[in-house]
Amino acid sequence: MQRMIYDYTKSVLERVSHAPDLFVKELKKAVKNLLPYELEHLNNWLNYYTKEKPELRKYLSAVEIKNAKPASKM
Rank of each mutant, 00 (worst) to 15 (best):
Q2H: 14
R3S: 04
R3F: 04
R3A: 04
M4E: 15
M4Y: 14
Y6E: 10
Y8I: 05
T9F: 10
T9W: 13
T9P: 10
V12K: 11
V12F: 02
V12M: 08
L13C: 09
E14F: 14
R15N: 06
R15D: 06
S17Y: 02
S17L: 10
S17P: 11
H18L: 15
A19P: 09
P20L: 04
P20G: 02
D21H: 12
L22F: 12
V24R: 10
K25V: 11
K25P: 08
E26R: 09
K29R: 15
K29D: 00
K29A: 02
A30V: 08
A30G: 07
K32R: 15
K32D: 09
K32V: 05
L34W: 08
L34P: 12
P36F: 03
Y37C: 00
E38V: 08
E38N: 12
L39W: 01
E40H: 08
L42K: 11
L42C: 01
N43Y: 04
N44E: 05
N47V: 13
Y48V: 14
Y48K: 15
E52D: 02
E52P: 00
E52A: 01
E55L: 12
E55W: 06
L56Y: 01
R57S: 10
R57W: 02
K58M: 06
K58F: 04
K58R: 09
K58N: 06
L60W: 01
S61R: 13
S61C: 08
A62S: 07
I65V: 03
K66M: 10
A68C: 09
A68I: 06
P70Q: 10
P70N: 10
A71H: 13
